Simulated assay, not measured.
Amino acid sequence: MLAAYVSGHGYGHLTRLCEVLRAVRTRAPRLPITIVGTVPEPLVRRAVPGDLTLRRVACDVGLVQRDALVIDEPATAARCAAFDATWDARLADEVAFLRESGTRAVLGDLPPLAFAAARAAGVPGLALGNFSWDWIYRHLSVREPSLAAHADRAARAYAGTDLLLELPFTGDVSVFPRRERIGLVARRPRVERAEARRRLGLDARPAVLVSFGGVGLPGLDRARLAEERGLSWILPEDVRTGRLDALGLDYPDVIGAADAVVTKPGYGIVSDCVAAGTPLVYTDRGDFPEYPVLVREMVRLLPCVHVPGDDVRAGRIGDAVRRVLAAGRPGAGAMDLGGAERGAARVLEAVR
């Protein structure tokens, strides 16, 4: 069996993990897979075909967000301290699970607990990611000193991995003893652009997807957006899972149908836009060290326009959208998109 652990922070970790698992399933249709984490089951079952077990366990903290753009650093520190207080019991539970289930390899994106458990259980541990949580927590510990201990614990766990399947947009991953670059893991649209637009009911106006993940942006001024008569807006309520299921679409199909995406930079949305060739209007996301790495790289791959967070909340994004639209769609193919297949090959080598 393959045990796949996933961080509970945002959808990006889950969606790229599922892309690798989809490729694993193609190569090994009968391999039992268990996903461990607090994950939305409908999204997982739509992404990974075949027999799949979900084990709902909170295996890390990630970051606590006030909304999509603001990190709650004190709450993050408090939750990390509470998690560390139960670390030994959590580790014992995961080691027992790995042994009793006959797990032959662990793939993790990117909870430290997964790799500590794999090491203790004596099974290979493979990490998937473009940064490590010890890097994030150490950066935030300047203001929240208690996070330094959590960073140290994460670093010890990562040091025991067998291999990091390293993705583009890489931050500090020096803690991993062995690393292999595999290329971009990204979801591709599976419905042709014109057909996806038809199913979404879009007209000839440029369509702009407003995408801020599961946390959302509650203060967004929708009335101001509606005043932009020359643009068609795809808002979070338009792309709820149930509606997309009814339309026979997945989220990457919506990204491919859009003429631009308004978002905060995160691996998941950036990689989806790269795969679809969809330009970005982006805003700030707090003092998150992955942010400048993503911005530096994504502007080389896609037309991108920055807009301040206050302007996004106020709906003052029409001008930025028109500027990025004027640059045109670059089309897919700007980056190596073979990461899922290469990652799957390495995972199956470990399982066997």
Rank of each mutant, 00 (worst) to 15 (best):
L167D: 06
G12F: 15
A344H: 05
V351K: 14
T241G: 05
A114R: 13
G108C: 08
A58F: 13
R224H: 00
G268I: 11
R179F: 01
P218E: 12
V95I: 10
R179G: 04
A89I: 11
T15W: 10
P145L: 07
G102N: 10
T38S: 14
V64D: 13
M335D: 08
R22A: 02
E100D: 07
G339A: 01
A194G: 15
P292V: 04
D93N: 08
V324A: 09
A159K: 14
L17M: 06
A159V: 14
A58P: 12
T283F: 01
T170I: 08
E349W: 06
R198I: 01
T283P: 07
L2M: 02
A345I: 13
R296V: 09
L167V: 13
D72S: 11
T76A: 01
R79K: 02
V270M: 14
V351Y: 11
L235S: 02
P218A: 09
T26R: 14
R27F: 10
C80I: 13
V64G: 06
R199L: 09
V312K: 07
V347E: 03
G102A: 03
G315L: 06
V57M: 06
E195P: 14
L325K: 14
Y5M: 00
E341L: 08
Y282A: 03
R313W: 01
L235H: 00
W133E: 00
P74S: 00
A204W: 06
L217F: 01
L126V: 15
V305K: 02
A127Q: 03
D310K: 09
L302R: 02
S101A: 09
A332F: 00
A326K: 15
R138H: 15
G338E: 03
I255D: 04
